[in-house]
Amino acid sequence: MNEDVRNVQAALATMTEHWQPHRLTSVNDYDVKVVKLLGEFVWHTHPDTDELFMVVHGRLTIQLRDRDVVLGPNDVFVVPKGVEHCPRADEEVQAILFEPKGTVNTGDAGGEMTSELREFG
């Protein structure tokens, strides 16, 4: 395979930990990340940026303070900057995230679920 080509399924197949995003590639000042999710994350915001979720496999609930947004395979949802949210996966979810380089997974919440971005490959 060409070294410039990345395969989402191949990347996800190498991942064993949940809530630990890996950079698949970058586009301008944005990272395209793959991640496996299971359980409930932490309530947090990203004060300076939107966050895009695209579900590859499974069913993801993005809890907002005023409603829940449920995503299935191939669904995309953008959490607007500054909106408090808490992703929840009752069964394992495989997803793609699109956000500016340097965005911390736990946003302004910090804590033990904060992960350093890992590289795929």
Score class of each variant (00 low, 15 high):
residue 10 A to H: 04
residue 12 L to N: 11
residue 12 L to R: 07
residue 12 L to H: 02
residue 14 T to V: 14
residue 15 M to A: 02
residue 16 T to F: 03
residue 16 T to W: 04
residue 17 E to I: 08
residue 17 E to V: 10
residue 18 H to D: 07
residue 18 H to E: 08
residue 20 Q to D: 05
residue 22 H to M: 02
residue 22 H to Y: 02
residue 23 R to E: 14
residue 23 R to L: 09
residue 23 R to W: 08
residue 25 T to C: 15
residue 25 T to Q: 12
residue 27 V to S: 13
residue 27 V to Q: 12
residue 27 V to P: 08
residue 29 D to C: 12
residue 30 Y to G: 06
residue 31 D to L: 15
residue 32 V to R: 15
residue 33 K to A: 07
residue 35 V to G: 13
residue 35 V to T: 09
residue 35 V to R: 05
residue 35 V to C: 09
residue 36 K to C: 04
residue 36 K to M: 05
residue 37 L to E: 03
residue 38 L to T: 06
residue 39 G to K: 00
residue 43 W to Y: 06
residue 43 W to E: 10
residue 46 H to M: 07
residue 47 P to N: 14
residue 48 D to Q: 14
residue 48 D to M: 08
residue 50 D to Y: 04
residue 50 D to A: 13
residue 51 E to M: 03
residue 51 E to Q: 04
residue 53 F to M: 01
residue 53 F to G: 01
residue 53 F to T: 00
residue 54 M to V: 09
residue 54 M to S: 06
residue 55 V to E: 07
residue 55 V to Q: 02
residue 55 V to H: 04
residue 56 V to R: 12
residue 57 H to S: 15
residue 57 H to K: 15
residue 57 H to M: 14
residue 59 R to W: 05
residue 59 R to I: 04
residue 60 L to W: 00
residue 61 T to N: 02
residue 61 T to V: 03
residue 61 T to I: 02
residue 62 I to D: 09
residue 62 I to K: 10
residue 64 L to Y: 06
residue 64 L to C: 10
residue 66 D to T: 02
residue 66 D to V: 04
residue 67 R to P: 08
residue 67 R to F: 12
residue 68 D to P: 06
residue 69 V to S: 00
residue 70 V to W: 02
residue 70 V to S: 01
residue 71 L to C: 13
residue 72 G to Q: 00
residue 72 G to S: 01
residue 73 P to W: 06
residue 74 N to E: 08
residue 74 N to Y: 14
residue 76 V to K: 08
residue 76 V to G: 13
residue 76 V to I: 10
residue 77 F to Y: 05
residue 77 F to E: 01
residue 79 V to Y: 09
residue 79 V to I: 14
